[in-house]
């Protein structure tokens, strides 16, 4: 995720102090992984250098939180450009699992076993996410669903591969 554009987006509504930006960020996007203060100020100074934000006011006193940042016109343009640009879909063409399966087949190991273990692991994670989803608010639910759908896709692949293991084995060993 592009943390820079996210900060710009948070500043577009209203100028904020650094700690305010961090709090907002954690609230919406941090979830299990809050952003570090160091990361916040490093990012802000990068944006400042690029002319995308400016320091709107400096309050008297000690500490790094005296500056209030505001977005510049260039910054607004940057956010708009970022939002309008579609994300490159993940091609998922490099799969560790696929490599593992082929290797297992080549080395005469139990590939089905490997897939079952993987499935159980996927399901374990899905179960955990489902549990979190139950307790969580809408944001939490949407985030978990995103993960769940991806995991489900993996599981489908596992299912399909399991069903076609014999075919694959024949081809790999040919």
């Amino acid at each position: 995720m592009s943390i820079g554009q996210t900060f710009l987006g948070l500043l577009e509504a209203t100028p904020r102090h650094g700690y305010d930006i961090k709090r907002r960020y954690d609230e919406h996007f941090g979830h299990s992984r809050p952003v570090a203060y160091g990361q916040v100020y490093a990012t802000l100074s990068r944006l400042l250098r690029g002319g995308l934000v400016e320091v709107e006011a400096v309050e008297p006193g000690e500490g790094p939180d005296r500056k209030r940042y505001a977005i510049t016109e260039a910054g607004v343009a940057d956010v708009a450009q970022w939002l309008a640009r579609p994300e490159q879909p993940e091609p998922y063409l490099q799969s560790v699992l696929y490599t593992k399966v082929v290797l297992a087949l080549l080395t005469g190991r139990e590939a089905a076993e490997l897939l079952d273990v993987q499935r159980a692991e996927h399901l374990r994670l899905m179960r955990e996410l489902t549990r979190r989803k139950r307790g969580g608010d809408l944001a939490e639910q949407l985030i978990c669903d995103h993960a769940l759908f991806h995991l489900e896709a993996d599981l489908r692949w596992l299912e399909l591969t399991t069903a076609r293991l014999d075919e694959l084995a024949a081809r790999v060993r040919a």
């Binding site: 079952d116 273990v117 499935r119 159980a120 692991e121 996927h122 399901l123 374990r124 899905m126 179960r127 996410l129 489902t130 769940l148 759908f149 995991l151 489900e152 599981l155 489908r156 399991t162």
Partner: peptide
């Protein structure tokens, strides 16, 4: 799988056989 994720544990049936993987 997403429905199965509401369970405490799963049992897989394939070709009429059960595979009971306790992880």
């Amino acid at each position: 799988a997403r429905v199965a994720a509401y369970s405490d544990r799963e049992v897989v049936v394939r070709d009429g056989r059960t595979r009971n993987l306790e992880v």
